[in-house]
Amino acid sequence: MPDLEKLRALAKETISRDDIKCLIGWRPGTYGYRTSPHFVRSPEDADQLIFSPLCSSNLATYLTLAEKRPVPRGAQPDTRKVAILVKGCDSRAVVQQVAEQGIKREAVYVIGCPCEGIIDLRKLEDKYPHTLERVEARWENGKISLDLPGGRAVFPREEIVAGKCLTCRYPNPVIADVTVGEDVEVRGSAGFEDINWLEVKNAQERWAFWRDKVNSCLRCYSCRNVCPMCYCEECILEKQNPAWIQRSVNISENTAFQLARAFHLAGRCIECGECERVCPVEIPLTHLNRKLVKEVSEQFAFTPGVDPEAKPLLVGYRPNDKEDFIL
């Protein structure tokens, strides 16, 4: 658990540098367990920074979201670096963005925050619904403690963290210019227990599972918008000419949208789980991503978001790639 004072001091020092225009971190949200992204532009802003098991959002999304406003004639674009706080999974997003040239490595200053797991707010809200007062949380000896209105509560990590954290193999940032706090133990298994149960069902059962889930998709596109790897200027799944997918919300278009979204992340998904976290109708989207993570790992021994020099998976091949499915 990083010392907040140290984190804020580091942030102040960082934002005071001439070559850094902004620092992206987390701050407490307006109520309850919520936290918000925090854009630090001056040393004073840094006082609000936090890092806790409630800091769920993957801030790497903002790196590619930055709008490129027209530069007035004669003026120069602001090319100073952006500093960013990253958890392990978030750092993989940064690496993958660098690997596929979404951002330049020298354009970011990465502040690594080793992470022991992020609270799944749905699990917490099941236990303590309608909490309005601000709640603070911290990691303590492999457990997570919360200062709830009714007093302090301590949970075993496994009981309360998000599913993605249980399978996480990269709790420590894979790149960082500077790290806050000590590296933590890797607890996630390399297996795919989280999806094996679904894989072993037959096709009808699998479809029945997905049909119910995807049927409720609102096509709000939150899953895509929050994804740090989805940063096309114009998403082909929303284009009308040509229209890959129609705008109507029904099982056909919803399924096609979710399949296309998952496929576009093949060999690119860094398992931050943001898509599933923000889904308002609780579609288990990470299952789709994890299935592809599994295939990518097993068939091609490839892990995205760990090596900024690595060639993306689907731009290459090996002559001996598996082809037992080909007639």
Binding site: C232, E234, L314, V315
Partner: peptide, 13 residues
């Protein structure tokens, strides 16, 4: 070029 995100996938492919 208006929608190209410059990822270079095509370059590698």
């Amino acid at each position: 070029e208006a929608t190209c995100r410059g990822c270079g996938y095509c370059v590698e492919i």
